[in-house]
Design a protein around this nucleic acid. Structure first.
Lengths: 336, 336
DNA sequence: TTGTAAGCGTTATCAC
DNA sequence: GTGATAACGCTTACAA
């Protein structure tokens, strides 16, 4: 019913090729087999249009060629780009991608993981806020942007270095009084290091700065309210702002312009992520660019690597700075 | 090895609950079972942390609770939003989503479908450019934005009506000479109707218009080249442009502004899709908004509906017009 | 309802 | 390398 003519099985292939059933199985599992046998099998298989039944294979609990990906949602540029690259990287490894979104619901995360471990996937790549070591233990798991425990590998961009870059850049561009704006989950993750790196440089270089941390519940409105309170006489007491994400930077910039504060003339802004406006080449603002593709590929590499002991707990991938029109770039280094 | 403590099976649940194996099976398949038995089974199952092994179930070829989604990629706002809503709609139906991207490779499409039918998914939702009736026959399939054959259900926005809306709007806003710009696949799809609806209104209302169709190979550069050739004395001989997608509109608008042609003062522009700049509320341009969430939910409904005969071949979902700053909206209808 | 048992297609393990 | 055969966990059919 699902299939017009019923599907050929390994037995059919074995008969067609005139070899033993086990030989066919070996061929499809990459087990070394005499060259001529292998050819006979492959030819017979393609003649019959055969391919392995993944459910029968999965039942034997060896390898399902399926990796689950857990993301908060696809409604954010960073997540959708990540999903895209993960999908490519997995398919290049002949792996299918099972995508689950948690809709930012912490409880959905562990429910999701529990469900998946029953469903026998080869492993999970998850970007979660509250999954615990308990949730993931006993199964191949790679976390993105959050260290779950020292024994669970985590891949992230070099958030600390990104914060450093941002601070150095703003200071190098002449800023005297900085603001670091963070809007994120109440739960700690790797991304919090962005602010730490930023603060470190400000302290070392003895530059005034204010650190403002808000939580998701506050929303962008919370940020705007904060800025509203900071403005004195139509002016902001900062000449440089580092926002923890490009999206936040975007909202801040829109607000500032509405209040008649010019970007980058009056205040320079740097974001984090490097997302492009609807996947074109255009950046949203000057920003610290995450190597999203590399993050995806590294996560897949670590997950699928047989030698999991080699996976260090935290892999930080290098970030770069890219001007996007919200900073006063120096045309020549001599121009300083 | 995959699992710390090995997983409980139906047999374990049956023993724990003190009922027959078949009863447990029935409970998990929604087959009517005496109330007290059902409760005993459910309690035992949760006590043991049991859930059905989808591979064993899939082997019997009944229902895998898995739906495959095929998209060109996730690197376009429309696709990633679609994927997001599909994922939600499926998970609400307790279905897992297997996501494959074809990277816009027509050959990858049928390869992908062939692969999936061997892999026994409950059905496929595909946005493809070249998949044929042959590819999909014999399996539950719902196509998006392209009619594959009269027997394969297709869900799309009401593209024709969208074209009509765009033309009526531009004409209503005073445009006298229109341009319809289309950039898309060489292969025909539902989206081509956007231009047809547009042309129809122009013809009926006797308004001058030019229809320019380019293919993906030409790229945005091709469109720019065309516009370059049209400009005479720094002016464009059009006062209204309908672009087949928001992304195209965005490129056109950027180019026009670079050439000193003001939008919407000199020329008004309407796009199609209704994508938001990185998932905020902001539209990219004045546009015809597709009901993406509804498209996703309808596709899932049709695919999972047992009564597939009810599925009409083509379902066109209503679109709406939304101003986005690239048209000269009339403040009051009397203002005309 | 209850046992029991036969498959589903693969993999893995035997002798040979 | 070959056969044959025992799992894997579930669904389905059967007689009781």
């Amino acid at each position: 019913m699902r299939q017009a003519g019923k599907k050929p099985t390994m037995k059919d292939v074995a008969r067609e090729a005139g070899v033993a059933l086990g030989t066919v199985s070996n061929v499809f599992n990459g087990v070394p087999v005499g060259r001529e046998y292998r050819l006979k099998v492959e030819e017979a298989a393609s003649r019959l249009g055969y391919s392995v039944n993944i459910y029968a294979r999965g039942l034997r609990a060896v390898k399902t060629n399926t990796v689950a990906v857990i993301l908060p949602g696809l409604n954010h540029m960073f997540f959708s780009q990540l999903a895209n690259y993960l999908c490519n990287a997995l398919s290049r490894r002949d792996c299918r991608m099972l995508l689950s979104t948690t809709e930012y619901d912490p409880e959905a995360e562990s429910r999701c993981i529990q469900m998946l471990r029953k469903n026998m996937v080869d492993g999970i790549i998850g970007l979660t806020y509250s999954a615990t070591q308990f949730d993931v233990e006993g199964m191949p798991y790679v976390s993105i942007d959050r260290v779950i425990s020292p024994t669970v590998p985590c891949v992230a961009s070099d958030n600390y270095q990104g914060g450093i870059l941002a601070a150095e850049k703003l200071i190098g561009l002449g800023c005297k009084r900085l603001l670091c704006l963070r809007l994120g989950s109440r739960l700690l993750g790797e991304t919090d290091k962005r602010g730490s790196g930023f603060a470190h440089i400000c302290t070392v270089q003895n530059v005034d700065f204010v650190m403002k941390r808000l939580n998701d519940e506050d929303g962008f409105e919370g940020v705007i309210r904060f800025l509203e309170g900071e403005i004195q006489g139509g002016k902001l007491p900062y000449d440089g702002i580092f926002c923890s994400t490009d999206l936040l930077a975007h909202h801040v910039i829109c607000y500032l312009e509405k209040r008649g504060i010019r970007v980058p003339e009056d205040v320079q802004v740097i974001g984090y992520d490097g997302v492009r406006a609807f996947f074109t080449e255009e950046l949203v603002c000057s920003t610290i660019v995450q190597p999203i593709r590399q993050i995806a590929e590294t996560a897949v590499d670590i997950l699928l690597s047989t030698d999991r002991s080699l996976a260090s707990a935290l892999v930080c991938l290098p970030v770069t700075y890219a001007p996007g029109g919200t900073t006063k770039e120096l045309v020549t280094p001599l121009g300083q």
